[in-house]
Design a protein around this nucleic acid. Structure first.
Lengths: 358, 358
DNA sequence: TTGTACGCGTTATCAC
DNA sequence: GTGATAACGCGTACAA
C-alpha cells in the first residue's frame, strides 16, 4: 500500500495541511518543519496521488492525443513533439490510435473526456468534423493538428499545403522542367487537394497550361504510387518530372521507373512531400519537402495550453511553412530550356505565356 | 460544468446509490426506475468521472507505455498493438517517448506511478534495468517488451533473436552462400548481440569457420549501415552475402553497394531484419525477417493484465518466433556451390566440415 | 506558522 | 428495491 499524505503527516508529527504546503511549495512553513516533512517523504517513499489531486483541482494535467494511423511515419514525429512539449508544461499524454475508424475516434473522445483530460489534440478527417463541433460547443479545449478542416473552425495547426505544393512544383519549373506531372491523393484528402491546388498555381504562374492527363489520383501508399507512376510513364511523351504529394507514394513511383528500365533523375525527375525517413533511403535520395512535424506537434501543445487557459474556443488557425530539401532525384534540364526558366523567374509579374509541354 | 452523479440523482428524483447501480449494471433496481435514470443521463449528457471512480476503486484502468524512440519504425507498430489490446480489456494507454534518455525514463516511471496507472509496458535498455528491479520489489506490474534483459527478470515478451539471427544466416547458407558477412549493432544492444550469436551458430551448423573480419559493428542508423557496408566491400574477396541485423542499416548498406557500381543481389545478397516499411521500398525489395510487432504489443498487454491480476511479479518470459520474408535481395549461388548446400541441408546431424570462405 | 474540517465524484456498506 | 453515509487522497478556506 502506497503512502498517503496522511502517513507523511503522522510520521512528521505535523498536519496534512502543512505537508500539502511543502508539497506545493507554498510559503508560510518553517524551514525546520519543511525539512522534517521532506525527510518523511523520503523515508516513506511517498509520491503524491495526482488522481486525487486532479479530483479536487478539477484539472488532470493530462492531454489526449488521437491519431488516425500511428504507423504512418508522419505521426510518430508529431507524437514526439507533443510529448516533449507537454512535459515542458507539466502535462502527460494519453494516446489513441484509431486506424482511421471514425467510430473508434468517437469512442476515444468519450473515453478521454471521462478520464477528465484537460484537452485533446487530434487529427480527424472530414468525416468526423461534427465531433469537433460538439466539443467546441461544450467549450472543451481541442486543437486539430496536421489536417486543416474546411468545414470546422476549431483551433488548428496545419501546413500551408497550397503554398507547399506550389513551391514543390516551382522547384521543378526552376530546374527547367515544363512537362510536369502530379501524383496526388486527390480531393479525398485535404492535404492532397491543397497540394494539387498549389501545383496548378505554380504552373499558372509560369504560364504553363494545366493538363488533366498529367494528374493521376491514388492513395497514400507505395503500391498506389507505383500504379500512378506506371500510368504516367505510358504517356507519350512521358513527363520529364513528377511532383508526388506524399513520400510514400514517391517510393512506389521509383519502383515504376526502375521497372521500365529508366533512371531517376536521368529520365524522370521526382520531388516528393513530407520528408519522412524513407526519402533519404531511396536511391537516389529523394528531393522532397520537409514539414517539420516535430515542431508542429510542439506548436499544437502550445495552442492547446492557450485553449485550456482561455476557457473558451479561440478558433485560431496557425499555418506552418514547409521547405524544399534538395537531394538527388531532380535534375536540371538542358540550357535552352533552362534559359526560359531563368527568364520566367525574373519576370514575376509577367503575363502568362503558353510554353506548352515537351 | 459537467453533470455529476448527484445531478442525475436529483433529476431522476432518486438516490445517488441507485444511479450508481444502474451505471454499473448491478441488480436490484426496478426496470421502471432504471429507465428514469437512463433518461436523466441522456438528458443531461452525463458521463461518469472515471478519475473519481479510480480513486475509490484503487484502479485507474490506465496502463503506461514507455518507448525509447517512437520514430524508430518498430515502435509505432508495437504501440498500435498495445492500444488495440488495451482497449479490448477496457484500458487506456498513457504514452511516453524518452528519446533514449534514461533520466527521462526514470521520470516517466515516476509520473506514471503518481498518475496511478495500473501497470507499465516499457522497453528499457540495460542501463536502466535497476529501475525495473525497483518496480518489481514494490510489486508494481511491469512488462518489458521487445528487449530482453540479461540481468533483470521481470516479465518479458521479446523475440528469439538468437534463433532469428540463425535463421537469417541459414537462409543465405541455404541459397549457396558461404562467404557471409554480418553487419550488427554489436554487443551494445541486446538484439544485436543475440542476432550475432545466431549468425555464429548458423555458420557453425554449416561447418563454416567464423571470421571476425566479416563482422562489422555499427549503430542502428542508415548512415552507419552505409559505413559498415563500405568496409565490407573493401575486403578481398568481398562477401557474397550479408546478414544485416536491422533494416535501417540494410537501407544504408544498399547505398554502399550502389556507390561502388555493384548490384543487389547480383554482386552481393542482403538479408535484413525487422521487416519495417522501408524494406519493401528499397530497390530491389529487401528480403528480411518479420518480427510481428503488432502481435508482440498485444501479447505484452495480455501479460500485463495477468501481472495486474496476479498482484505479484510472475517473472514470465515469453519468446516470439520470427519469420523470413522472401523478397528480391538474395540470389541463389550457382549450382556447384548450391549442391554443397543441399547436401548440408540433408545432413542435419553431421560433423562440422570446414568448407572455408570463397 | 499551523491545524480542522469540508468537498471533489464515485463506490461500498449497511440499514431500511 | 432503495437510500444514507463513509470512505478514497488531496487541496484549501478558515480558524487558531
Amino acid at each position: 500500500m502506497a503512502a498517503t499524505i496522511r502517513d507523511i503527516a503522522e510520521f512528521a508529527r505535523i498536519s496534512v495541511t502543512t505537508v500539502s504546503r511543502v508539497l506545493n511549495d507554498k510559503p508560510d512553513v518553517k524551514p525546520e518543519t519543511r525539512e522534517r516533512v521532506l525527510a518523511a517523504i523520503e523515508e516513506l517513499g511517498y509520491s503524491p496521488n495526482s488522481v486525487a489531486r486532479g479530483l479536487v483541482l478539477k484539472r488532470s494535467n493530462v492531454i489526449g492525443f488521437i491519431v488516425p494511423d500511428i504507423t504512418n511515419p508522419s505521426f510518430p514525429e508529431l507524437a514526439r513533439g507533443i510529448v516533449i512539449r507537454a512535459k515542458h508544461y507539466g502535462y502527460r499524454v494519453m494516446f489513441f490510435d484509431t486506424n482511421h475508424d471514425s467510430n473508434v475516434e468517437k469512442e476515444a473522445i468519450r473515453l478521454l473526456r471521462s478520464r477528465q483530460v484537460d484537452g485533446i489534440i487530434l487529427s480527424f478527417n472530414e468525416a468526423n468534423q461534427e465531433e469537433l463541433e460538439k466539443l467546441k460547443l461544450e467549450r472543451f479545449p481541442v486543437v486539430q493538428i496536421y489536417r486543416k478542416s474546411p468545414v470546422s473552425s476549431v483551433t488548428t495547426v496545419a501546413l500551408d499545403n497550397v503554398k507547399s505544393g506550389q513551391s514543390g512544383t516551382a522547384y521543378l519549373l526552376e530546374h527547367g522542367h515544363r512537362r510536369i506531372a502530379h501524383i496526388t491523393t486527390g480531393e479525398e484528402t485535404q492535404s492532397g487537394k491543397e497540394r494539387l491546388e498549389g501545383y496548378r498555381k505554380a504552373l499558372d504562374e509560369f504560364g504553363i497550361s494545366y493538363q488533366p492527363n498529367l494528374v493521376v489520383v491514388g492513395a497514400n501508399t507505395p503500391e498506389s504510387g507505383l500504379d500512378c507512376m506506371r500510368r504516367l510513364l505510358e504517356l507519350n511523351p512521358p513527363p520529364t518530372a513528377v511532383f508526388v504529394s506524399h513520400d510514400r507514394m514517391a517510393a512506389g513511383a521509383y519502383e515504376a521507373v526502375y521497372e521500365k528500365g529508366l533512371t531517376i533523375p536521368g529520365d524522370v525527375s521526382i520531388i516528393g512531400h513530407d520528408n519522412i525517413e524513407i526519402s533519404q533511403l531511396l536511391h537516389p535520395k529523394l528531393t522532397t519537402i520537409d514539414t517539420f512535424k516535430c515542431k508542429l506537434g510542439q506548436l499544437g501543445v502550445d495552442l492547446l495550453i492557450e485553449e485550456i487557459a482561455a476557457d473558451f474556443p479561440m478558433n485560431r488557425e496557425v499555418v506552418c511553412e514547409t521547405k524544399v530539401v534538395e537531394r538527388d532525384s531532380v535534375r536540371s534540364l538542358p540550357a535552352d530550356t533552362a534559359d526560359v526558366n531563368l527568364q520566367a523567374e525574373s519576370e514575376k509579374g509577367r503575363e502568362p505565356v503558353e510554353i506548352g509541354p515537351g
